[in-house]
């Protein structure tokens, strides 16, 4: 089995599409629908990489990211944040989330895949 990637987004359509794409590239994919879900999956499953949507029922992506990066056992797990360029980044300005990469929505699959590959050192 390949490396394990956790995808967290509150929109099931995006999860389905991402899962298909990543599975086709040889990754094992687990999913979560909200921030709470994301934290318990990260703690329980120790994925190799997390793709996090920012706009989610709380805790939002920034907060989840902060929690993970503050946890010495989890902080090495790379996190990609999916952000919409406009409002959110303004709102959370000054919050040092510590994410490893940002991909702006609507993302294109090649760009996301390239980020995944580079973070997993493939």
């Amino acid at each position: 089995m390949g490396q394990k990637i956790l995808i967290v987004d509150d929109e099931p359509g995006i999860i389905t599409l991402l899962k298909t794409r990543l599975s086709a590239n040889g990754y094992e994919v687990i999913t979560g629908a909200n921030g709470q879900d994301a934290l318990s999956q990260i703690k329980g499953q120790h994925p190799d990489l997390v793709i996090l949507d920012v706009m989610m029922p709380p805790p939002n992506g920034f907060q989840v990211c902060r929690t993970v990066k503050d946890d010495p056992e989890l902080k090495n797990i790379p996190i990609i944040l999916l952000t919409a360029k406009s409002a959110e980044s303004d709102k959370f300005w000054g919050v040092e989330s510590g994410a490893d990469a940002y991909v702006t929505k609507p993302y294109n699959p090649e760009e996301l895949l390239a980020q995944v590959t580079s973070l997993l050192g493939k």
């Binding site: 359509g13 599409l17 298909t20 794409r21």
Partner: peptide, 23 residues
């Protein structure tokens, strides 16, 4: 235009996945 982009990305990715034979 902005609102159209999100669903359009999903449409593209879906069609692309079928086209590439991922499904």
């Amino acid at each position: 235009s902005h609102e159209l982009r999100t669903p359009l990305t999903m449409v593209r990715e879906g069609v692309l996945q079928v086209y590439e034979g991922l499904l």
